[in-house]
Design a binder for these strands. Structure first.
Length: 790
RNA sequence: GCUGGUAUGGCGGAAUAGGUAGACGCAAGGGACUUAAAAUCCCUCGGCAGAGAUGUCGUAUCGGUUCAAGUCCGAUUACCAGCACCA
């Protein structure tokens, strides 16, 4: 038992007052940039789940320093956003004050677990020196035409009174507050992330991410190869459809428009049942997105009476329908229906009794199938038919091959106060004009409440009145602010040069540190922050600000820490574990160790208030080694192999995120050492170095007390020698016909044929194999012999 | 429905390239120390049979490949995550 409170406090103070963890820009050492997702400083404070990622890369950071790297491991605050604003409204406190309070609390909690962050580079996305550069990047995007205000249907959270990006809608509800999300048409700022869709897929080949992260991003971006094909109509205007199966063109029975399609408005005079169609459109617009896009919902629609379409490939006249299963914002908002080979079209015609024909022998559109009823495509397989039809439509100028993406542009505005002001001035004459002087500071206000019609509280201020920088006339400022994800889309660059007033970070600093060598974070950010920041980085690459096409070389992801009841930790479930309580009861080293030991780092695991005791016992045992230490400055011969094995295992396991088995190895080793009731100085020195990344306080104390040489934070990481990993004896398993029948021990390595001979000589084996013929013999060196007898 | 993943004792989880399943830890039971408790130390700890040596079954289910399968292949089931009428 040791007094962890005193020891941990002592070392945390020492670290606070030294430069050990401060990365220097430019050094002879090789650089290593470790990054963890910076937190949103909420009023609730940290919970143990936050720490898992930070402790894990702290283990890596502490190891890297010993390996001679110039390590950058920074931390900051992603502090703009709705929860703080809502908290501010509820408690009538300015969001700035609430944020400052929350940051102070987070920082205190974080420091109490002894993570070796470089606090000199701390950043805060809500400070104007920071968001100046967020605004600067926005202005660059605007200049390149990648930021624009566009009319579109948007997701509207009724409880936040705010638009949401598609990525922020989870199961039809607001990602943040869980409120109901409805559709609304609005002119909104958007960022054209879709322009980068293909590159965001392609460049995944350049990076080391878990496969599940890559596939999830690819699925989200949703690339589909197909064709756009024109259909003529009886009113003259052509309709363009998008299809992934152009070869089924001869099976088209009708075409379907999205209810919102402008074609309807343009030709309403010609549509005999226009009232019915507008009523249907009205009905659909009132539906929640989740209901409208429910695949199991019964198909509905209305025939457009008075206008027909013509399939230009076979000159067949076909009817036009509107239906809500066709989405206005994907493809062209028009589809060609092929009921024989598409289950949705099939369902639709069941209801509306439309005739159709099959065009492939096998009606499943997977694998190869022969084309039928398809004129010049007959007899071809569907793959060749696709090529041929694309050539045909291209040649006749009625279509072309086309690639469509599910990814939508990023809705980049929130009708809220607590965010970065969008640096735009709206002038009646000149349109949207960029603010000249950045930062455009968020004004102080007293009433943060969003108005009932969903306008930002900034609308009520005189601040919005300004002059147009172009024409000098009266103009109004943009009152929407940027979304939560803006500040985090480039924060890893600001760490490199956080004080710089002239640019977001100096070119030299960027060239030196980028890319991030290892980035760990949650799976929940895969299609949000991780995708957004890759997009911004690519843009910054294109305009020459950064030197790498991808920001993160390697990405890993931790599993969630669940409550003791195996459910997600949350206030409402009452299963949140506060790290401060655990630190008070067991100490920082124990919570660190337990978070790394509790299970496979990449899988979720429940918190156990019982299991953590094992980690406490382990550190007490480690401390007790001080009582049995001898002066000998070597590893005892009997332990040479064990130590080499442990060094190898711990070293490799840390790199492979197998922290749990690294710790198990150390637990095992300490058990063996204790059996001898003695440890040598050298042994304790090595053991302390291996344990130090996990339990830095207690190991630093032991290091100091025993006057081991050097600063433990920079002492060379122990090396292992494979040739010294040997066994004094081997236990040989003998199987007969695959069943274990005996075991015996040999004292030194023997060759395989010798081993088989020995195995056969074992008394038990003799009894089994006598009177039997040995058909085959198998041998695994120094491990196992299997005799096949008949 | 689609995509990805997972399935091993009472629990969290181990098991390089197919080669002793259950490392390490927790909980539980027994014992030592103690007036007692806590702490600590020692022993046991997958099921069944057996006093025991030992035998036998056992890694979600069914089947296959192999001298040998938790590991490879095929099918099934359950759970987790993401997407979800994307033409």
């Amino acid at each position: 038992m040791y007094n962890f409170k005193d020891i941990e406090q002592k070392w945390q103070e020492k670290w606070e007052n030294c430069d050990d963890f401060h990365a220097v820009n430019f050094s002879d050492k090789p650089k290593y940039y470790l990054l963890v997702e910076f937190p949103y400083p909420s009023a609730q404070g940290l919970h143990v789940g936050h720490l898992r990622s930070w402790v894990a890369l702290d283990v890596v950071a502490r190891k890297r320093r010993k390996e001679g790297y110039n390590v950058l491991y920074p931390m900051g605050w992603d502090a703009f956003g709705l929860p703080t604003e809502n908290y501010a409204i509820k408690n009538n406190i300015h969001p700035r004050i609430a944020t400052e309070k929350n940051i102070a609390n987070f920082k205190k909690q974080l420091k109490s677990v002894g993570i070796s962050f470089d606090w000199k580079r701390e950043i805060d996305t809500t400070s104007k020196d920071y968001y100046k550069w967020t605004q600067w990047i926005f202005s660059k995007l605007f200049k390149k035409g990648l930021a624009a205000k566009e009319e579109s249907t948007v997701n509207w959270c009724s409880s936040c009174k705010c638009v949401l990006a598609n990525e922020e809608v989870v199961g039809g509800n607001c990602e943040r507050c869980g409120g109901e999300v409805t559709q609304k048409t609005k002119k909104q700022w958007i960022l054209k992330i879709t322009k980068y869709a293909q590159r965001l897929i392609d460049d995944l080949d350049l990076v080391d991410y878990p496969e599940r992260v890559k596939t999830q991003q690819k699925n989200w971006i949703g690339r589909s190869e197909g064709a756009k094909i024109l259909f003529s109509t009886s009113v003259g205007e052509n309709l363009e459809i998008f299809t992934t199966l152009p070869e089924t063109i001869f099976g088209v029975s009708h075409i379907i428009l999205a209810p919102e399609h402008k074609f309807i408005d343009k030709h309403k005079n010609k549509i005999e049942n226009i009232d019915e169609i507008l009523a249907y459109r009205e009905k659909v617009s009132k539906m929640k997105k989740i209901d409208r896009t429910d695949a199991n919902k019964e198909k509905s629609g209305v025939k457009v009476v008075g206008i027909t379409a013509k399939n230009l490939v076979n000159n067949k006249e076909i009817p036009i329908f509107v239906s809500d299963y066709v989405l206005a914002d994907y493809g062209t908002g028009v589809v060609m229906a092929v009921p024989a080979h598409d289950s949705r079209d099939f369902d639709f015609v069941q209801k509306y009794h439309i005739d159709y024909i099959p065009v492939m022998r096998d009606n499943k559109n997977t694998g190869k199938s022969e084309m039928i009823n398809s004129d010049f495509l007959n007899g071809l397989d569907n793959i060749s038919a696709r090529k041929k039809i694309i050539e045909y439509i291209t040649d006749k100028k009625i279509g072309k091959s086309y690639i469509s993406f599910k990814l939508r542009d990023w809705i980049f505005a929130r009708q809220r106060y607590w965010g970065e002001p969008i640096p735009i001035i709206n002038c009646e004459k000149c349109g949207a004009v960029l603010e000249k002087n950045l930062p455009l500071v968020l004004p102080d206000i007293e009433n943060f409440k969003t108005s009932e019609n969903g306008e930002s509280p900034l609308c009520a201020l005189d601040w919005i009145k300004t002059k147009c920088p172009k024409c000098g006339g009266d103009a109004l400022r943009e009152t929407d602010t940027m979304p939560q994800w803006a500040g985090s889309s480039w924060y890893f660059l600001r760490y490199l040069d956080p004080e710089n007033n002239n640019c977001l970070a100096s070119k030299e600093a960027i060239d030196y540190w980028m890319p991030v060598d290892w980035y760990n974070g949650g799976m929940e950010h895969t299609t949000l922050h991780l995708l957004y920041s890759r997009f911004w980085h690519k843009f910054l690459y294109d305009i020459g600000v950064v030197n790498t096409p991808e920001p993160y070389k390697k990405r890993t992801s931790h599993g969630m820490i669940l409550g003791g009841n195996n459910e997600k930790m949350s206030k409402s479930r009452g299963n949140v574990v506060n790290p401060t309580d655990v630190v008070n009861e067991y100490g920082a080293d124990v919570i660190r160790l337990y978070e790394m030991f509790m299970g496979d780092f990449e899988k979720s695991a429940p918190w156990s208030t019982e299991s953590i005791k094992g980690c406490k016992r382990f550190l007490d045992k480690y401390w007790d080694l001080l009582n049995i230490i001898s002066d000998e400055d070597f590893v005892r011969p009997g332990f040479v192999s064990d130590f080499n094995k442990a060094i190898k295992k711990v070293s490799l396991d840390i790199e492979n995120l197998k922290f749990n088995t690294a710790i198990a190895t150390l637990m095992d080793l300490i058990g063996k050492i204790k059996e001898t009731k003695k440890i040598t100085r050298k042994e304790l020195e090595i053991f302390s170095l291996l344990l130090n990344p996990f339990a830095p306080h207690v190991t630093s104390e032991v290091w100091e007390r025993l006057k081991f040489s050097g600063n433990i934070n920079f002492v060379k990481w122990p090396e292992y020698d494979d040739s010294l990993i040997s066994q004094e004896s081997y236990e040989i398993v003998v199987q007969v016909n695959g069943k274990i029948r005996d075991k015996f021990i040999i004292n030194s390595s023997v060759n395989d044929s010798e081993l088989v001979k020995l195995a056969k000589m074992q008394e038990k084996i003799q009894n089994i194999i006598k009177n039997k013929r040995i058909l085959k013999e198998f041998c695994v060196s120094n491990k196992l012999v299997n005799l096949v007898v008949g």
